[in-house]
């Protein structure tokens, strides 16, 4: 079975898993900033590698990217991407500042975005691991601020020959207090062998 042959029903299942992960992440983030945050996964899709740099519009669009290795029963990477403007808004919220305060990324803002990435990755991987019956953990995060095309292709290609398809999990943040929304993208990039393991586990889950 190849990733391109994933059925709609299996993608729906993965989306449900991602939503459970988003729920866990929302709880963690809400506790962190003492304000209610809701997270949802409006879409989960498979995209051909070559199309990915254009997913966020122009490949020159500036984004904040947080990359982590996946450790445990499978290997690969997870990438969290926020458009620059969304990353600034998110930083204001997380640091409890007035909206519009953050205009550039210093060490504090960077570590704030990294931490968000780590919380989200941990929650998503935890939910996915539970669904698949596998142990999955994120490594320490690495954060960059650069062109989306460069960030995405390096995340996919930088570590070996990649899959033809990637799993893109759109994630929307809703800050309940003032009804502010923002959007980020999560990319699941399993290594070749690991993708087989994930697909087999999904297959088994469907035939139980």
């Amino acid at each position: 079975m190849r990733i391109a042959e994933l059925q709609d029903i299996q993608l729906d299942a993965l989306k449900e898993v991602a939503n459970i992960g988003a729920g866990h992440a929302a709880t963690a983030l809400s506790q962190l900033i003492s304000k209610q945050v809701m997270l949802k996964v409006p879409s989960l899709q498979l995209d051909p590698l070559e199309n990915v740099p254009n997913l966020l519009g122009s490949p020159e669009r500036v984004v904040a990217g947080v990359l982590m290795h996946i450790l445990g029963d499978i290997t690969g990477r997870m990438l969290l991407l926020f458009p620059r403007e969304a990353a600034l808004v998110l930083t204001d919220r997380l640091l409890g500042k007035e909206p519009g305060t953050t205009t550039s990324f210093t060490e504090m803002e960077r570590s704030c975005i990294s931490e968000t990435g780590n919380i989200l990755a941990g929650s998503y991987l935890g939910a996915l691991g539970e669904f698949l019956g596998l142990l999955l953990l994120p490594s320490v995060p690495s954060m960059v601020l650069d062109m989306s095309g460069a960030v995405l292709t390096t995340a996919y290609l930088g570590f070996g020959e990649p899959q033809d398809f990637v799993i893109c999990i759109e994630t929307s943040f809703h800050f309940v207090e003032d009804d502010k929304q923002l959007k980020g993208f999560f990319f699941l990039i399993p290594d070749m062998d690991s993708l087989e393991i994930i697909l087999k586990s999904i297959d088994v889950s469907f035939h139980m």
Binding site: M68, H69, V140, P141, S142, V144, A150, L157, G158, F159
Partner: peptide, 17 residues
């Protein structure tokens, strides 16, 4: 040929960049 995310590369000299 950039090596972004170099701080979490197992071996930066062997990065794809």
């Amino acid at each position: 040929g950039a090596s972004m995310f170099a701080d979490i590369f197992p071996n930066p000299a062997l990065s794809m960049g």
